[in-house]
């Protein structure tokens, strides 16, 4: 059975189940919450996808099992590290994250559903990693963490994780619209020696094999994601770099404006998918 026919069959089965449940008079919303794992999320706006599936849906069952178990999920090593760093005092201001934000489970709840955001002092977007480092340099008077450092990854996992299960909800406003537009243009632009855009893989051909991997819709609701390939969690920007390299294009930098705009646009495409951080992917 090819994955495509598998997915189609699954969709049929879900439709059937929904039908049966409706007949039986159950409230379907209570039984089947669309989380993009076994049931597709319906897009709220019109764009290239009729239904939205989490990357989880396209992963092998062994990889899904790694994510599902709270102990087995290797990303939780970073989550615990992040929790420890939250209350750790650092920098000349002798502050920790907790000094300003208290209980992360309250103060950081929902943050991952709306980032990246427009940051007026710089007149551009910032993502969660940059927000963390801004707090460090401006509030804590501490050194910023490096992009691929264990600390920044751990803190980004921890902050994103506070919204686990909440649907991604990027709202387009007058302020972020120009950046969303730029992100969209980036998404559909062909690039690299292979002359491919993001849309070629993740909009037109998702669910199909590219060599031995099944293409996902490229949603980022599980980031920072523990990738089996990386053997550790990595940022959305690191993933974008990898994708750009795969089509043999010159990648942009970690933390670049280009990738922030793309992050906003791609995150918006996944509106409605629950935050899964730390997800586990191939």
């Amino acid at each position: 059975m090819t994955p495509i026919s598998g997915i189609k069959m699954m969709k049929k089965m879900i439709k059937l189940t929904v039908g049966v449940l409706l007949l039986a008079g159950f409230s379907t919303s209570a039984v089947l919450a669309a989380d993009g794992k076994s049931e597709a999320v319906k897009p709220a706006a019109e764009f290239g996808l009729d239904e939205i599936w989490s990357g989880y849906h396209f992963a092998k069952k062994e990889t899904q099992a790694l994510q599902d178990d709270d102990f087995d999920n290797p990303g939780n090593l970073w989550l615990e590290e992040g929790a420890a760093l939250w209350s750790k005092v650092d920098g000349d201001a002798k502050k920790s994250c907790q000094s300003c934000h208290n209980d992360a489970s309250k103060s950081m709840k929902g943050v991952a559903t709306r980032y990246p955001v427009y940051y007026a002092p710089r007149k551009k977007l910032i993502n969660i990693e940059q927000r963390i480092n801004l707090c460090r340099t401006e509030q804590m008077k501490a050194k910023p963490w490096k992009w691929k450092s264990k600390q920044l990854l751990a803190m980004a996992v921890y902050v994103n994780n506070q919204s686990k299960g909440m649907p991604v909800n990027i709202r387009i406003t007058a302020e972020n619209k120009p950046f969303w537009e730029k992100g969209k243009a980036f998404y559909y632009k062909r690039r690299g020696q292979l002359d491919m855009s993001c849309a070629h893989c993740h909009e037109k051909y998702y669910g199909k094999h590219i060599r031995s991997n099944v293409l996902s819709q490229g949603h980022i609701n599980g980031f920072p994601t523990y990738r089996l390939k990386w053997q550790k969690p990595g940022s959305v920007h690191r993933r974008f770099k990898g994708c750009n390299k795969q089509v043999r294009a010159k990648p942009y930098g970690l933390g670049s404006d280009e990738y922030n705009n793309l992050e906003l646009y791609v995150k918006w495409r996944g509106n409605g998918l629950p935050v899964e951080t730390p997800a586990v992917r191939n």
Binding site: I210, N213, G242
Partner: peptide
């Protein structure tokens, strides 16, 4: 073992 992976 799957080779040639972009990771999907």
């Amino acid at each position: 073992v799957t080779i040639g992976g972009c990771g999907g």
